[in-house]
Design a protein around this nucleic acid. Structure first.
Lengths: 170, 170
DNA sequence: ACTCTTCACTTGCAAATTGCAAGTTAACTT
DNA sequence: AAGTTAACTTGCAATTTGCAAGTGAAGAGT
């Protein structure tokens, strides 16, 4: 049948052996890290959820990115137990290992580009990096889909990070 | 004269207010962070140096990316004092603030993608994040162009990070 | 059992971006 | 004064992206 899988344009060039360059080969585009974010901090896992995630990714691009992330060992796809149509994409260990990077990206973005993230939340995360990462890892391990962060666009509710009232002492 | 500066395709879409998304609008491509890396840890600063940096960026793309980074306030261009042709690109505060992100990217890349970075070096950086970042900041402030990291491709020499023999106690 | 949705993708195509090679201009060097 | 170098443009072909409209299999509703 000779299936032709055209995933994410890796058109020859082996680039340099610099780890930064290698990492960017996989993640250096507009969408890949956004999908990782959706899985990591917003608890999304299906095609449909990513599609409605709010950034307006085209379905063909979404499909292509999911494939390249899977090919790169960052996400794993598993069929849903309750719905034969549905597929759940989940971060692998390699994928969840992007958490520190994601956190720094988030902090930098909030500090230096205009964003809807409240300053207090960013302050808190910046001062409790380890706790945030621990909580992120916990969610991943326990398959806890509760969003760690709100969506920031549609006047969402506040974060789950503040230990004030929440049950989890992060 | 109506100069038309076509910088880096930001073609309308205001995306979401998520800080991660905003950060990726500026940095989410194959080249931008590579240029930041060149400036941050390899001490490069001129067009020519970036061009010969080893990743094979095309000159028109390089030009376009430098413009977008400048427009985004991440780098600043200043004419060379000694050579009227030459322009030095230097990270701004906003740019050097990407250091933690860059470090995590480097660590992740080295750990999870094949790279030429020696494990010992990565171990060291991972355990001394704060020191590495402090040294990076110092270099930036003092305009010290000595590479913090080697080029990893052409069998370069080892890092400047190891305090064993180096003068700087990081 | 039959129809209507929903889910996860494809496909076709136009528009935008990228990469390559070949200029161009002003500033050194000899 | 001629040649070289730095920093870019320009033209154009090859990719890649984005949009709209399918497709096929699995569930839901009746």
């Amino acid at each position: 049948m000779l299936l032709t899988v055209v995933v994410k344009a890796k058109p020859a060039m082996p680039r340099s052996g610099c780890p930064v360059s290698r990492a960017l080969e996989m993640l250096g585009d507009r969408w890949s890290l956004l999908l990782v974010r959706d899985m990591m901090v917003r608890g999304l896992s299906t095609f449909r959820e990513f599609q409605n995630s709010g950034e307006g990714i085209a379905t063909n691009i979404l499909s292509s990115r999911l494939q390249s992330l899977e090919a790169g060992g960052i996400v794993a796809a598993e069929p849903s137990a309750h719905d034969g149509r549905s597929i759940h994409y989940r971060l692998t260990e390699k994928g969840i290992a992007l958490a520190p990077l994601m956190l720094e990206l988030l902090i930098w973005g909030a500090r230096h580009e205009s964003s809807d993230a409240p300053c207090a939340m960013i302050d808190e995360m910046e001062q409790n990096r380890a706790a945030v990462l621990a909580e992120t890892l916990r969610r991943w391990k326990e398959r806890d889909p509760t969003p760690l962060l709100p969506r920031f666009a549609p006047a969402g509710k506040t974060s789950n990070l503040n230990p004030a009232k929440g049950k989890s002492r992060i």
